[in-house]
C-alpha cells in the first residue's frame, strides 16, 4: 500500500492562529485544505512538508458572500459547493462549469476552490512514486537538476492543470492573500508564474483566503475542457473565453488557455482578433488560429502534444461559437 510519511498535523481554528503556526514551523510547513493534491504528492514523496497546517476548520474561509456587488468565494469552499451554488451557476456559469469538471464527484466533495487554484503543476515525469523517479533519475522539480520533458531547458515545464485558473484569469477575478503582513489582493492574471516550480506568485507563508469575482454585467464567459475521460482526468487543454458585449459587437475579449503551459496562458492576439466584430465565422477562425500559434503543449501529460496543439484551434472556435450563441442579439 502507499502510505503517508510522518508529519506533524496542526488544526488552527482561525487565520491568525494558522499564520502563527506557520511562522513557528518555518519553511518545512505547508497548508492543506482538501488534501486531494497534497496527500498524493506526499505519498509519492514529491512534496515533503514535516508540518501540515490544515485550514479546514477556519470557518471564515468557507462560503459564498456578496460584497459590494462582488461575489466572493471562500477558498475553503468545496468544488461541489462551487459547482452547485445557485448564484454562481446563474451569474458565473464558467466558474461553475470548470469547478464541476474537476476530477470526480467524490474528489469535488473534498477538494476546495483554493486547492484547485493553487494546484501543484503536474508532469508525468514528476507525479510518480519515489522509486519510479529514481529509476529515471530525479527531475529539477524535486531532488534533481534536469527537466526530462526538455532536457536542455534551464527551467521546469510542469503544467498548470487547474480547470479554474484559466477562467479566473479570463474573467478578471482577484485573489485575496493573507499573511502576517496583512492582506493583499492580486489579479488572477498576476497570481500565476510561467514556471513549473515557482508557479505561483503567492508566497508559501501566505494563505489564499478568497476569490473575488467581477460584477456580472455585460460580459459572458465559458470554459471548455479537453480530457480523455469524463471524470478523474486533469485537462490536457482548457479554453476559457470571456467577452464584454456592446450589443451584438465584441467590445472586449480575453482568451486564456489552460494545461498547455506552466501557467494559465492568456492569448491577447486571439482576443484582439474578435474585438469589434460580431463573432462571424471568419473572426472566430482568426482568433482560433491566433490561439493555436502560441499553444505549445509539452509531452508530459496525457495525449499527444501535436494533437493537443491542434485541438487549441478547435476548442477556441467552439468556445467562441458558444458565446456567440448565448448572445440573443446575434
Amino acid at each position: 500500500m502507499l502510505r503517508l510519511p510522518r508529519f506533524d498535523y496542526l488544526e488552527p481554528k482561525s487565520l491568525k492562529q494558522a499564520l502563527k503556526m506557520r511562522e513557528a514551523s518555518g519553511d518545512n510547513a505547508m497548508y492543506v485544505a482538501g488534501g486531494t493534491d497534497l496527500y498524493p504528492n506526499m505519498k509519492r514523496r514529491h512534496q515533503d512538508p514535516t508540518t501540515v497546517i490544515s485550514l479546514a476548520n477556519i470557518r471564515a474561509l468557507t462560503g459564498v458572500r456578496n460584497r459590494d456587488g462582488h461575489t466572493c468565494i471562500g477558498a475553503n469552499t468545496t468544488l461541489t459547493q462551487v459547482a452547485k451554488h445557485r448564484r454562481i451557476k446563474r451569474h458565473y456559469p464558467a466558474i461553475a462549469t470548470a469547478a464541476g469538471s474537476i476530477s470526480t464527484p467524490l474528489l469535488r466533495n473534498m477538494g476546495t476552490l483554493g486547492g484547485n487554484l493553487c494546484l501543484d503543476t503536474r508532469c508525468n515525469y514528476y507525479n510518480q512514486t519515489l522509486e519510479w523517479r529514481k529509476s529515471i533519475d530525479y527531475c529539477m522539480k524535486k531532488d534533481g537538476a534536469i527537466c526530462w520533458v526538455a532536457p536542455s531547458s534551464p527551467r521546469c515545464w510542469a503544467v498548470n492543470s487547474s480547470d479554474l485558473a484559466p477562467v479566473t484569469v479570463a474573467i478578471g477575478a482577484e485573489m485575496a492573500l493573507v499573511s502576517a503582513d496583512g492582506e493583499r489582493v492580486v489579479p488572477a492574471g498576476k497570481f500565476y508564474n510561467d514556471d513549473g516550480i515557482e508557479y505561483l506568485t503567492k508566497r508559501p507563508d501566505e494563505i489564499l483566503t478568497e476569490l473575488r469575482l467581477p460584477q456580472p454585467n455585460g460580459w459572458d464567459a465559458t470554459y471548455l475542457k479537453l480530457a480523455r475521460r469524463g471524470s478523474f482526468d486533469f485537462p490536457v487543454l482548457g479554453v476559457a473565453a470571456w467577452i464584454r458585449w456592446d450589443g451584438d459587437t465584441v467590445a472586449d475579449a480575453r482568451i486564456v488557455l489552460g494545461a498547455v503551459a506552466s501557467y494559465p496562458m492568456p492569448v491577447p492576439e486571439a482576443g484582439a482578433a474578435i474585438i469589434g466584430t460580431s463573432l462571424g465565422d471568419d473572426a472566430i477562425e482568426t482568433a482560433a488560429t491566433a490561439a493555436f500559434k502560441p499553444s505549445k503543449p509539452m509531452d508530459n501529460t496525457d495525449h499527444g502534444l501535436s494533437w493537443r496543439k491542434q485541438m487549441t484551434r478547435v476548442y477556441v472556435a467552439r468556445a467562441l461559437k458558444e458565446l456567440r450563441a448565448n448572445n440573443k442579439l446575434i
Binding site: 496527500y39 461541489t80 474528489l107 473534498m110
Partner: peptide
Amino acid sequence: DPVLSCLVL
C-alpha cells in the same frame, strides 16, 4: 458526503 478515505486523515 461520499469522500475518499485514503485522502482524509
